[in-house]
Every structure is written in C-alpha cells, then in structure tokens.
Nucleic acid binder design. Sequence first.
DNA 1: GACAACAATAATAGCGCTACGATTCAAATG
DNA 2: CATTTGAATCGTAGCGCTATTATTGTTGTC
Lengths: 346, 346
Amino acid sequence: MEKIIRKPPRNRRKMQSVTMTDVAELANVSPSTVSLFLRKPEAVSASASQTISRAIDKLNYVPNLMAGGLAAASSRAVSIIVPSVRNAFFAETVSAMQTALKKQRLQLILGHTEYDEHEEEELVRMALSWAPAAIVLTGLSHSPATRRLLANVAIPVIEIWELGGPQIDSAIGFHHDQVGIAAAEHLIQQGRRNLVFLGARMHQDRRAKQRCDGFLEAARNGGATARVVEHPDAASAEIGAMLLSDALRLYPDADGISCSNDHIALGALFACDRLKVAVPERLAVVGFGDLSFSAACNPPLTTIRPSGDLIGREAARLIEDHLNGEKPERQLTIDTRFTLQHRRSS
Amino acid sequence: MEKIIRKPPRNRRKMQSVTMTDVAELANVSPSTVSLFLRKPEAVSASASQTISRAIDKLNYVPNLMAGGLAAASSRAVSIIVPSVRNAFFAETVSAMQTALKKQRLQLILGHTEYDEHEEEELVRMALSWAPAAIVLTGLSHSPATRRLLANVAIPVIEIWELGGPQIDSAIGFHHDQVGIAAAEHLIQQGRRNLVFLGARMHQDRRAKQRCDGFLEAARNGGATARVVEHPDAASAEIGAMLLSDALRLYPDADGISCSNDHIALGALFACDRLKVAVPERLAVVGFGDLSFSAACNPPLTTIRPSGDLIGREAARLIEDHLNGEKPERQLTIDTRFTLQHRRSS
DNA sequence: GACAACAATAATAGCGCTACGATTCAAATG
DNA sequence: CATTTGAATCGTAGCGCTATTATTGTTGTC
C-alpha cells in the first residue's frame, strides 16, 4: 500500500535519435506545429515554415511513419499482392503503380502468392496488419477466408488483371475470354480453319484458362476446328517449342496457333524455324503479352497487348482519389481493354 | 484557473475494431500474455496458448504492426530498392528474397530508382521512416546524401548485384568485370579474334559498363581486337538486332559478339538469322543473364548466368541472422559468382 | 472602441502494442 | 515448515506521432 517510492524509469530502447520534438525545440515552436507543417504546409505561416524547414534539414530529421500511422489510424503504405513479380505482366503493373504512388509519398508493400490461394490469404492478413491505405489483389478468385478478411475493411480493395466475376470492391483489368475470342477471330479472318491453343499451367493460371476457353468457343463459332495442347509447368519458350512440336504431331493439319502468352509463342516460332515450318505461310502464330522481344522476332509476332501499366496507373488513381476523400462509388469496374498487334507471324 | 470541468472525451477514429485487449478479455488473460504468445509462443503455457489462439480465431484478430513496431522500436519490414522490377534480374532477386523473408514474417517494401541516384536518395529516406529491419540497395554507387543517411543506422544495409567497390555495410553479388573477362576468354578459346561488345544504356547501367570494360581488357590481353557498339536506350531485342547490324557493318571481320545481356543477344540472333549470318560458324554470340528464353533460342544461346535468386536468399539469410542477434562482422562481402552456360551459339 | 471573425499556434489525450520489472504460485530443497 | 527457485503471468510506462480542442494574437466591422 505504500509503494509510493518511484522506481527508476526503465530504459527502453529508443527508436530514433531525432524526433519531431527535437525539431520543434530547435525551431522554437510546438511539436503540433511541426506536425502540421509536415502534413499541411499551407496552414503554417511562412516564417514558421522556414525555421521548421531549416531545423529539419539541420537535424536530418526523418519522420517515423509507424508513429504517424498509429496516431492517424492509417498508413502511407499500399499493399499489392501478385502471383509473381518474375512475371513480366505483373512486374509492369507493379512498376507503374509504384511510379504513380511515389508522387503521393505512398510506399508499396509487395507480396507474391505463387498462384497459391492459401498463401494469398496469409499475405492479406499480413498486409492488413500494416493498416495500409489500400490493398491490391490479382484476379477475382480468392479463398472464402480472404473474402471474409476483406469484406469489412474501410480501405479500397482493388482486384486487378481480371474482369468478369464477382468482385470484392473495385476491379481494374480486362476480360481474358475476350482476348481468346480476339485471337480466334483474327486467325479465322486470316483464313485459318484448323486452330490450336498452346497453353501452360492452365490448372493454376485461371486467366490463361479463360483465354483458352474464349478462344475455343469463338473458333468453333467461327466454323473452325479448335484443339488445345497444354503443359502443366509455367510458360517458357522451351515449353512453347515442345508444345508446338506436339501440336504439329497430333494435328498435322493445324494452320493457326494461339499461345497462352508470348514466351510460349517465342518458343513456337523457334520450333517452327527448326522444323522448317513457314510462318505465317504454313502456320500463323498469335501470342499474348507483347513482351519486349515480340516485335523483334523472326517473323515479328502478332500478339495481343494487355495494358499492364495502365492497370497500375488506374489503380494508383483510385487510391489517390480515395485518399483525397473523393469517395467514388464502390464496386467500380474499369476495363482497360487490350489491343491486337498485327505483325508478320499471322 | 477553474477548468476542472472535464470536457467530454474527443472521439478519435479508432484504427481497429478488435485489438489485443479484446483478445485478452475473451481469453481471460492479460494483454501482456497475448503479446507474449504472439511473439514467443513457447513461453506461454499450453492451456493459455490454446485459449488465446481460440480467441484470436474467434475474433479474427489482426495485430497492428505499426503499434508493435513503434513499441518495439523496429518493424517487420525490409526495404529493398532496385533500379526496376521490370528487369528480370532484379525481379528474380526480389522474388527470392520475398520467399525467404516470408518465413520470418517479414514484409518487403519495394522501391525503384529507374537508375536515378536522386530518386534513390528519396527512397532511402522514405524507407528509413518505416524503421525497417534491414535495407537493401542495388549496386555500390550512391549519392553522398544517401551514404550519410545510411552511415549510422543500426540495421543491416545490404548492397546487392555488385562487388568490387567501397561498400556501406555488407555486399552480396559478383564482379561484373569478371563476367566480361569470362566472356572474352571464352570467345578467344573458341578461336575468335575479332570481338565486339554490344551494349545498351551503359551511361546509366554501371554494371553493364563494368562487364564491357572487363571484356575489352581481357580481349586485348588475349591478343584479340575488341570493339564496342552501343545504344543509349534500355536493352531490348530490337536494339540488339540494330546493334548487331551496326556491328557487322562497322566491323565486317567480327567473329565473336558479347552482349550486355540476353535481350540484346536474342535480338542479335534474330538479326543474324535475317542477315543469313551463320551462328556460331561465322559469328559466335555470348549473352549475359540466362533468361527464360536463352536455352530455347536458335541456336541455343551461350550465356553467363548470374545467381539472382542466390543473391536474394543470401540477403534474406543475413537479415535473419541479424534479427536473431547473431551479429556477424560488418562489411561482409559475399561473392555469389556466376557460371558460363556453354550452348551452341559459340 | 467593443466585438466578432479569423489565422496561427499550442496543449492534450490517446493510437495499439511491447519491454521491462514485478508478482504470483507451485514444486523443490534443507 | 520456512525458504528458495523457477515458470507463468501481469501491470505499467511509454514508443513518436496526429486529431481535436483550446488558446492566443490580429484584423476588420459598425
């Protein structure tokens, strides 16, 4: 009952050597003013601004975003979860988003699922523990637990690179079945009637599957035959070459090939070269992605170009708008479309 | 003076609906125990563990990492700054790091500089404001301000993808000049004497420049002639094709080509195909990177394979060790080496 | 010249969590 | 049986910042 004896203060590890208080002292203002200056410079008088600014420079002050985020109940982080950054498509989107978000002083927290829904769920949980300003997921397919986690968050949830299914909140992307349809229609228009789709990892890559399905249906609707040759591993030129050989062996009358992406298409072109199959005379080849090499191939590859960077920019814009309080309707859907690049391979 | 009238409490926006205290209440323990359970489960009794675990599940509790980080004076974030994630090399490292760090429940905060030192400086500043557990930079070349920012931080600073210069703290990578040397020696060994290096963006990409310089020196030391043909833009197959045509026009006697990376080499191979230049008979081609298509080319590309994923894994291991208190000597240097993949293009 | 209106600044009370020391309680020891 | 030990748990005091209200000073108005 008489523990009035003040124990010596514990020594807690300090995180920072120089805090906002230090800046305030040097600038002869209150910490509040420094905080205000940092958040809304226009609300602070010119003279105060100058002294504070000088003090910050002199002390080399770096604000602690965790303290700030904790106090403000939201952070300057945006979480983005993609299947893999090794994939050029997602790398492009991540890169574009990063560039756009940089202007808002928002940081990207990256996670990759490797096409595993359970992994995604864990990543979403980790992401939420940062109280991010927004969370970006790839695709519309998520585990029930993931949906539950995201059902009632107050921040924008943006699903990218896929449209055409039930969305959690906003979605930015395009319809992959339409990509398949566009490829099929193009080949038919080029006079091809025996079409084959070369696919990789379609049991995991839902979007590749959608492109394939759209292709098959459109081909058949257009009066062409349509077959699929696939491989369980991830897309690569090597697998593309294998698939093309298989396709020509199984369907010697094939005259039009659509590939689940440009890596496959590149391998197919190499295989055609080796097998002395004339492209496009004997076989037309269409890819997807318009990757860096696609225009430089022999022959240059006809391909469908998605707008990976536009997806990233639009996502960033949505987040920015939300941050500025312009709360747009939820369940927003933005179709970024795609374009067919007609080159010599078809 | 008589402001003893307590004003009604302000209503601050709460960040979370369910906090650690809620979990503690439901589990009938103190918040401290919940915290302990989350950080060191083995220090909590089995029965308590179970009730807490159940309460967490029931409430769908997500810890607030910002509060945790603030209190613990360090966060579960690792900041990685690369020139670009669009670049397959860095994407590979980022991906490998992410996979390794995931096991430690560490999150990657990504930044890209687009080869701009000033941008890097800003990114480092932003990174530091997250009080990350470690910070990873690309290369050894940084602005003085960046060095100053990082000079006295208590966390590991890891520079990746380059060795051979003054390092801030630890460095993981390889010597790019040795890559150039290996390419030159290989071509000479194959009987080539008139060598050309095809380079892109070498005014910005220091490491490409180092490879080029190593190549030139080794070639000349080996009694070969060595020339450079370069382009200011970023590497791509298209530019590779242009550079090859230029090289053959300028140096018709060239019999060995080394490319600053496999994109360039791919374009070079395409150009050779179009120009009916026999590879390797008339012209040997060596790349750098061993990208996904390199083994599938016509002919398969001889290339030097850096270990991008090993760099990422080693960086993660360093960070992990530091987190576990095993403070290794600073200024650690890890040479991850590279390997020459001899294929048919040389 | 009294008062309102406004701009600029300051004081205060947390945000949710962790580190640290303190406390409790059971088992082990002399 | 008093004491020691150790494991398990708890209480407290911030971490560095922001949102909100409160306070000050400075104009403008009738």
